[in-house]
Amino acid sequence: MKSWEEIERNPKFVELVQARKSLGWTLSIITLIVYFGFILLIAFDPKLLGAKIGSGVMTLGMPVGLIVIIVTFLLVGIYVRKANATYDELTRQIVEESK
């Protein structure tokens, strides 16, 4: 069993950490922008979300809310897809090499 110092120096470990960090934070920031964009719109310009679209009573806020929900799900999907493709194999190799 290798020590944690050795694992830390393993280039694959560095790669894993980098990949996780950049993907995780990028997606987190996108989530924050989308969500707080929505919240700040509610806070500062609720009239805009209440604006009518189309010929009926539908307002802009309805599709916007729906889109935020869908985007949230898609972002998680993107993460899981990318993570499954790279993290697990890297992790397996690191674990293997540290034995």
């Binding site: 987190s28 989530t31 969500y35 935020v68 929900i69 993460y79």
Partner: peptide
Amino acid sequence: GYDGLIYSVGFLVGWPIVTFLIAE
């Protein structure tokens, strides 16, 4: 009415953060 959706969206958007930064 619409205000209920603010809660729905808010309850949901915590999940990406949990996934990206904390779960693993």
